[in-house]
Design a protein around this nucleic acid. Structure first.
Length: 244
DNA sequence: CCGGTTGTTCAGCG
DNA sequence: GCGCTGAACAACCG
């Protein structure tokens, strides 16, 4: 469950352990996860698709990648990559990337580019886009330095909602459409969050995995587009190609 | 049962 | 050094 909104849900479900001491650690991670043993979990943060478990002086970064999963106070049959035991329960992470970061994460992360962040900065996103004129919109929507937390579903849904063809170059988007695009990433991300919590995310997909355009009834295209070559669902009829 | 994927990094090559 | 490609990771769904 890897896009930004899903990681916000993950952060909410581990929030009860904030302020608690890690009594034991285990798992098949190659990082020095024992380090957390005896330390108090000070804070949980997220940056895009990353979950940040903050301790005094260091942070455990968990990235679920494509196949990662987690369980709270439950186990799966497969061995966990990382398990943290508290007096009140435990957290298991599976098939994910685990890294330990030293020092102050505020020096490392730009929270303004996280699409779920309280400090999300729309104008900064627009400026970042203007600095990348020759890239395709389908690629910049997956760029974690511009839209941290945006993934392939958000990409497809945002392009469909804004009627922008995935192969449009950033420099050909009129300024009002740049604003529209950036706003829609934020809006859809929070719709994603709401629908995910209601277990109705897929039901609300307008383009992603769909075969027919709900606006014009023509078949949707499914192609692997851009430098990222990710699966892209779009309507050739409704989504405007900005090419001049 | 097989094929495909809500993601990222890294090695290898020209 | 760069850009591109493909592998690797490894779980679950249809």
């Amino acid at each position: 469950m890897p896009e930004g909104p899903s990681i916000v849900i993950l952060a909410e479900s581990v929030a009860p352990f904030v302020g608690k001491k890690v009594l034991d650690t285990s798992g098949n991670s190659k990082e020095d996860i024992q380090r957390a043993k005896g330390h108090k979990l000070i804070e949980i943060r997220t940056w895009g698709k990353q979950l940040l478990l903050c301790f005094s002086g260091f942070t455990i970064k968990v990235h679920l990648l494509l196949f990662g999963s987690y369980r709270i106070n439950e186990e799966k049959d497969t061995p966990p990559r990382l398990r943290l035991d508290f007096s009140s329960g435990f957290i298991n992470f599976y098939a994910c990337s685990v890294k330990i970061i030293e020092g102050d994460i505020d020096a490392l992360y730009d929270w303004d580019v996280d699409i779920m962040s309280d400090t999300w900065n729309q104008n900064k996103a627009i400026e970042n886009l203007i600095r990348q004129p020759d890239r395709l919109v389908c690629d910049v929507l997956l760029d974690q330095e511009i839209f941290s937390g945006s993934g392939n579903i958000i990409k497809n849904e945002v392009l469909y909602r804004t009627c922008i063809h995935p192969l449009s170059l950033v420099k050909f988007l009129p300024h009002n459409m740049l604003i529209r695009l950036v706003k829609e990433v934020r809006d859809y991300a929070f719709d994603f969050l709401k629908w995910k919590k209601e277990y109705s995310l897929k039901k609300h997909w307008l383009a992603h995995t769909n075969r027919i355009c709900t606006r014009c009834n023509l078949p949707l295209n499914k192609e692997y587009l851009g430098k990222t070559k990710r699966r892209t669902f779009y309507c050739n009829n409704c989504q405007i190609l900005y090419d001049s």
